[in-house]
Amino acid sequence: MSLAAPTHGFLSPTGVEIAFLLVGLVTFGAALVSVTTRQLVHAALWLVVTLGGLAVEYLLLTAEFIAWVQVLIYVGSVVVLLLFGLMLTKAPIGRSPDADSGNRWAALTVAVAAAAALVWVVVDAFRATWIDLDGAAAGSTKVTGESLFQHWVLPFEALSVLLLAALVGAIVLSRKAKADAAGPEVPGARDGQAAAERAEGAR
């Protein structure tokens, strides 16, 4: 994060800033639609738009590496897994009448609280720092790698242990289902395993 350009004001936005805002609005709208729509697969596809929009925002902030990884992991894998799961259900084409749960207010509360916490953390951390978009890219692969493996190694390893735990848990769950069935492999077990291995790949 380079330091602020001294002569910066809110009233003379640059082209990048306008683009950032517009893409942000689109992303926000897509996110809203993806949680409010009653068509399950449409929700997943709106999620693609949301995640893609986020990737564009990263790009605008010169964090190229993060942007492509975002597309690769979330759009390329997580949403595909989601769609795979949806296709296994009986999701109808058109509205699902029962695609609504009673605790939408609780969900809203949690979402707003999480958003508030994130915004607060970001605002508190960066205050009025401006990214110098004209200088060397602050988010290139080299820079990201160096900061990740020099300053943030411990959280990185902690996260990988967390993912490993999830992986082992998934395997344990699928093994148990297999032992209960006591027959040929249960399809569900295999999916769980695939998902677990997927998670490892994503890491």
């Binding site: 590496f65 597309v71 759009v75 595909v80 084409i93």
Partner: peptide, 24 residues
């Protein structure tokens, strides 16, 4: 800068087309 990731990421997006076609 991250060409390999770009290429693989975007190729994975292409498969979404088949998924959309299959479901719709």
């Amino acid at each position: 800068d991250a060409g390999v990731f770009f290429v693989l990421a975007v190729m994975a997006v292409g498969v979404l087309g088949s998924l959309m076609a299959g479901w719709a």
